[in-house]
């Protein structure tokens, strides 16, 4: 699905991952190829154990693949071995991650949960706070900026988590079942939000999901089964055509 004249933000080539060795070897990913372009929201679907989260972890540079090549934002980061020494910095600068559950730090309020990522990136306290508040307003949870995670509803907490993922303006946003704890109406709202972010920030968004109700929110869907890419479907018109 290479698009001439556009560079993929995420490019996965022949990526494989296995665990164990010999008879105990389990192939979690086998020769995965995929590309995600700026502004795209891509779905990664498949039954449990199909390798979705493993693929997401490899793309998040949390898990080292066993072979293949991975390019993030035009920079080759893996080619049969890690090419970057500081993967932590790479994650901080280029990747935003939205977890299945918000995973907000319980001892920080909504603003600081967003600002903490900015601090880690080296932004000063005032600037980090200002940007965090802007992001919360953008995600329409600005009125809850002083609330602790336990005081937020599920939808509000997930929005704060999305704000945290966006804090450093990453080109790549990886989401692991972000709508799982939400009802279908809120799930659609979150997916629409992700689409808006993809377009506004020209980011590539990859969403692992089981939720068939949100399929129409994806530009592209990859289906995995037993570690192999089964189908590769285009579900929407090219980015920007109808949104």
């Amino acid at each position: 699905m290479t698009e001439p004249g556009r560079q993929a933000v995420v490019c996965v080539e022949r990526l494989s991952k296995y665990f164990g060795s010999g008879n105990a070897r389990v192939d979690a990913l086998i020769d995965i190829n995929m590309e995600v372009f700026p502004g795209q929201v891509v779905g990664l679907m498949g039954p449990s154990g199909s390798g979705k989260t493993t693929l997401l972890n490899c793309m998040a540079c949390i898990l080292e693949p066993s072979g293949g090549r991975l390019t993030l934002d035009g920079e080759a980061v893996y080619d049969d071995h890690w090419l970057k020494a500081d993967l932590r910095r790479l994650r901080l600068d280029k990747i935003g991650f939205i977890f299945q559950y918000p995973n907000l730090l319980p001892f920080l309020d909504a603003t600081d949960n967003v600002a903490v990522v900015l601090h880690l990136a080296g932004l000063g306290a005032a600037a980090a706070h200002k940007r965090a508040v802007e992001l919360l307003d953008y995600l329409e949870v600005g009125h809850r900026k002083r609330a602790l995670p336990k005081q937020l509803s599920g939808g509000e907490a997930q929005r704060v988590a999305i704000a945290r993922a966006l804090a450093n303006q990453p080109r790549i946003i990886l989401a692991d079942e972000p709508t799982a704890p939400l009802d279908s109406a809120r799930a659609r709202i979150v997916m629409d939000l992700l689409r808006r972010i993809a377009i506004d920030q020209s980011a590539a968004i990859i969403v692992v999901t089981h939720d068939e109700m949100i399929l129409d929110r994806f530009d592209h869907i990859y289906r995995l089964r037993d570690g192999r890419l089964e189908t590769d479907e285009v579900t929407r018109a090219p980015v920007g055509a109808d949104y």
């Binding site: 932590r88 600068d93 991650f97």
Partner: peptide, 16 residues
């Protein structure tokens, strides 16, 4: 542990 895992995931250095 969970907060630490989250911090590490989002890119917190060991020194933090």
């Amino acid at each position: 542990v969970r907060s630490i895992a989250t911090l590490k995931f989002v890119g917190a250095p060991d020194r933090t």
